[in-house]
Design a binder for these strands. Structure first.
Length: 413
RNA sequence: GUGAGUGUAGCUCAACUUGGUUAGAGCACCUGACUGUGGCUCAGGAUGUUGGGGGUUCAAUUCCCCUCACUCACCCCA
């Protein structure tokens, strides 16, 4: 069947395409208040970029990348996430630090699609490169919350944790490993694999039995080194002072290898439409990534929001369009209508004119289908009286407006 | 990658259990009643390779196998 989209992709049909753009623009507005500039990166990069950043132990890299060899024998991958590309661009172009960047665009991961999870999905992301202060962490968390408020998605908290750094994490891993080895008999099969590959991920397990056991396990946030501990305390204090609704979640560990210190997730609280996915976004510090790429030691932090999931949460909250539909009833009126169409558009009022052969009833039906807010009727009566009949479709009301006042009247609406 | 469930008109679904002449309904759509007033009403109309392929059978939407798609969950993540 040719007439079908590839698995895990979606068409944003009207009005969802418009709604998507609306959310993107709100995001642009909010982040620009915090001094972020938009960066547009390629949709594919050298595969190696992701191997060295996102991490060799992550599923994203080991199983989910869309990789291909191009005609010049380059090993490339459709981007599974945005951060590596941004960091690469910053280093390559030697941007002055600190820098605040945001991006909007599609990401690709080969996995089984389900509710709120697609092979092509859209992310809204921010990266702050070159700022180490705990206040920055809180500032961008607060910015995220402000964005969610702005789009009326306020039933939401942020889960916060610290995942340490290369100084404290290895020590902790040994400690955790000891604990897990003692309980190896009781944990599930998946967790047994995690113990070998990446012990901290056991905290993500959804099996009740495992959760009970891990309740008593040592936690990374209780075993931070001096600097990480100070940083984390400062973040928590600042979150409290700024009255940001957060929850300290010592079990939260994030999936990407490069995270250090502060990690967080935006989680809807109300009756979620997201199925088994619980977060609409997440992020954290990655203080070593720039150095890992061969750059100078540079602290950084960022987050990514799932646009598709946000749209699911918003549901059918549709905004009525401010589209004006002009209906001309005869040839003379049509000529007048076409002039009016130009006038309206020049005044930045979105407008359409009906095809000449439709009668009034049918034309109103079309206006209805297009969910126009206003209709302007031009017929012999209007031509004679030098007025337009302006009809409000939602209020089912109409009035005659002098022809030279129409732009003025519509501009106010 | 693993497991479960669904695919019938544009949409939501019925008929399948116990195979049997032209596969139905509601909404939507088209036409008209209504030749300058849309969401209502009434009358009429069009619509399906029953996801695709194969098998069993005199006969398959119905039973069996394969495949594809969707949904849900696991895994993982936005």
């Amino acid at each position: 069947m040719i007439l079908s989209n590839p698995k895990g992709t979606q068409d944003f049909l009207p009005p969802y395409g418009d709604q998507k753009a609306l959310v993107e623009n709100e995001f642009r507005k909010v982040v620009s208040l915090y001094g972020f500039s938009e960066i547009v990166n390629p949709t594919f990069e050298h595969t190696e970029l992701y191997l060295r950043s996102t991490g060799l132990t992550t599923d994203i890299v080991t199983k989910q990348m869309y990789t291909f060899t191009d005609k010049g024998n380059r090993e490339l991958a459709l981007r599974p996430e945005g951060t590596p590309g941004v960091v690469r661009a910053v280093l390559q172009n030697k941007l002055k630090l600190p820098v605040r960047l945001f991006y909007i665009g599609p990401m690709f991961r080969y996995e089984r699609p389900q509710k709120g999870r697609y092979r092509e999905f859209f992310q809204l992301g921010v990266e702050v490169i070159g700022e180490s202060e705990p206040e920055t962490d809180v500032e961008i968390i607060e910015m995220g919350m402000r964005f969610f408020n702005q789009i009326n998605l306020s039933d939401l908290i942020v889960k916060v944790n610290s995942v340490g750094c290369p100084i404290c994490r290895p020590k902790f891993r040994v400690q955790l490993r000891l604990f897990l080895d003692k309980n190896l008999e009781q944990i599930c099969d998946d967790c047994k694999i995690r113990v070998e590959q990446n012990p901290m991920r056991v905290f993500d397990c959804k099996v009740e039995k495992c959760k009970e056991i891990y309740h008593d396990a040592p936690k990374i946030s209780d075993n931070l080194c001096y600097d990480c501990q100070n940083h984390f305390q400062a973040v928590l204090k600042e979150l409290n002072e700024r009255k940001i609704p957060f929850e300290l979640d010592k079990m939260m560990v994030r999936g990407l290898d490069y995270y250090t210190r502060t990690a967080f997730e935006f989680v809807p609280t109300g009756s979620s439409e997201l199925g088994s996915q619980d977060s609409v976004g997440g992020g954290g510090r990655y203080d070593n990534l720039v150095e890992d790429f061969g750059g100078p030691k540079t602290p950084a932090i960022g987050f990514a929001l799932g646009l598709d999931r946000i749209l699911i949460c918003l549901g059918n909250a549709l905004t009525s369009r401010k589209l004006v539909y002009i209906i001309a009833l005869d040839a003379q009126a049509l000529k007048q209508g076409r002039q009016l169409l130009d006038t309206l558009r020049n005044a930045e009022i979105p407008a359409l004119i009906n095809p000449p052969d439709k009668n009034l009833r049918a034309a109103l039906g079309i206006a209805d289908n297009l969910s126009c807010e206003y209709v302007i009727i031009i017929g012999a009566n209007e031509m004679q009286k030098k007025v337009y009949t302006l009809k409000n479709l939602t209020q089912r009301s109409q009035q005659e407006i002098p022809q030279d006042k129409i732009v003025e009247v519509l501009s106010k609406k």
